[in-house]
């Protein structure tokens, strides 16, 4: 465990990263992953979300799910700010490989290189992948 942990209200604050590498709708991982993220907000931890590989598809604008009769949960990403979850990291290489850019995304994110993403991951205490 890292030595430079912050202590608040008697408990240690850990760095939690939720890693999203899967697209929405085809499988439930993105939706159920988001449910964990929302709950984590209640624990006052240092929470971040990483989007890479097909996980970047979770954030694209224009999702319309009437035809598949599934819940469109993409607006929830915009609501995260209200839960004080503001660290949304997107890997640039994954975006570019999919013909996407930051303008295609429905929420403000921090776009970073693969190397920067790797540095970010290495700093975490807990990494939960969906």
């Amino acid at each position: 465990m890292s030595d430079d942990m912050d202590f608040e209200e008697g408990g240690a604050v850990k760095k939690f990263m939720f890693v999203n590498r899967k697209a929405p709708y085809g499988t439930i991982y993105a939706l159920e992953g988001l449910e964990v993220v929302l709950i984590s907000a209640a624990f006052d931890q240092d929470v971040s979300l990483a989007f890479l590989d097909d996980g970047v598809f979770q954030l694209v604008k224009g999702q319309k799910t009437d035809g598949v009769e599934m819940k469109n949960f993409s607006p929830t990403y915009r609501a995260l700010e209200g839960y004080d979850i503001e660290k949304l990291y997107v890997e640039r290489e994954s975006l570019e490989a999919r013909g996407l850019s930051e303008e295609d995304l429905l929420v403000d994110v921090q776009v970073m290189s693969a190397a920067e993403m790797g540095d970010m991951m290495a700093q975490q205490d807990v990494v939960i992948s969906f």
């Binding site: 408990g11 449910e35 964990v36 709950i39 624990f43 931890q45």
Partner: peptide
């Protein structure tokens, strides 16, 4: 139980 149990386990 709830999802909080997962976050708590991480903590």
């Amino acid at each position: 139980s709830g999802l909080g149990q997962l976050v708590e386990a991480g903590i």
